[in-house]
């Protein structure tokens, strides 16, 4: 037990003696973990975000004025058969009038004496995120109906957002891989500097009969401490940001971010231990004879 305490205090001393390099290692681990954490949260929310966006995919179809309601129903049943269409809601001339009244507070019949509003239909798109849907082909099929006068849709902007979202995930993953190796390298470099600075101690320890693992232990502990500090800082920041943005995003977009704090902390901790262990083992294996 006292032996462990000794090794631990040696590790802390090492860390403290090289504050600047230790700081750079902590920072690189911190960066790696922030990116990992963001990716974890993003991937936990991917399907929800796509569902959320697709829920807002609305194609509004306006029929020509001379088309009868019966004809519209026939066309709509054909629209429902288009691949990628989830559901449709027909808005009759009377419905449109009511909507107009509720939105503008005016009775259109009183203003111009007749109802000029056309029959329309809201086309909803499948939400399922497993298949990417081709909005353009749906639009083209809708355009082929003679009975349709005008089509309104926000599909392009939403599929662009989906594209950005996927680009973001891919970019973050590549950056993660890079910073992962950078942090292994900086930790290993920090430990190497400590080993150089401790040459005399290492020599003395070997002369008085310390085993290899005893000599190595403070350096490995130093590395793990760096990892631990990095993961504590990044967990704090991520959780803080999440708590802060949760309400904000809910208020403005009524989207609830899904996250699991325990899983997040656990993943970040294990990742930091893996990084710091690889980093410090690499240094001790290469620079401790």
């Amino acid at each position: 037990m006292d032996k462990l305490a000794f090794l631990l205090s040696e590790g802390v001393k090492n860390l403290w003696r090289h504050k600047l390099t230790s700081f750079s290692s902590i920072f690189s681990i911190f960066l790696t973990l922030i990116i990992s954490g963001t990716l974890i949260i993003v991937s936990q929310n991917t399907s929800k975000v796509i569902e959320y966006l697709r829920d807002k995919y609305k194609i509004e179809v306006f029929f020509k004025n001379e088309i009868t309601f019966e004809k519209v129903e026939e066309v709509v049943s054909n629209i429902n058969k288009i691949n990628g269409v989830r559901s449709t809601t027909v808005i009759s001339k009377d419905d449109a009038e009511k909507i107009f009244k509720s939105q503008f507070g005016e009775d259109i019949m009183k203003i111009i004496g007749y109802n000029p509003l056309p029959i329309s239909c809201v086309v909803n798109i499948v939400k399922d995120d497993t298949k990417t849907i081709n909005i353009a082909s749906i639009i083209n099929k809708l355009k082929s109906f003679q009975e349709i006068d005008e089509i309104n849709y926000q599909g392009r902007i939403i599929s662009r957002i989906e594209g950005y979202y996927q680009l973001f995930v891919r970019l973050m993953t590549s950056i993660l891989i890079i910073v992962f190796f950078i942090s292994i390298f900086t930790i290993s470099n920090t430990i190497r500097l400590t080993i150089y600075a401790k040459e005399k101690l290492i020599e003395s320890l070997q002369l008085i009969g310390a085993t290899r693992s005893f000599v190595k232990a403070p350096f490995i502990i130093e590395g793990i401490l760096i990892g631990f500090i990095g993961s504590a800082l990044s967990s704090l920041l991520l959780i803080g940001l999440l708590e802060f943005s949760y309400d904000l995003i809910y208020t403005y977009l009524s989207f609830k971010i899904e996250y699991d704090i325990k899983l997040l902390i656990l993943t970040l901790c294990s990742l930091s231990i893996i990084i710091s262990f690889i980093g410090s083992s690499r240094a001790t294996a290469r620079f401790l004879k």
Binding site: M1, K3, L201, S204, I208
Partner: peptide, 24 residues
């Protein structure tokens, strides 16, 4: 002498006992 300059006399002499794993 091979004494460690950055440790005091007590710590220098104690080092072999830490290696063996003696109690404080």
């Amino acid at each position: 002498y091979h004494l460690l300059e950055d440790r005091n006399l007590f710590e220098n002499i104690a080092l072999p006992l830490h290696v063996i794993g003696c109690s404080k």
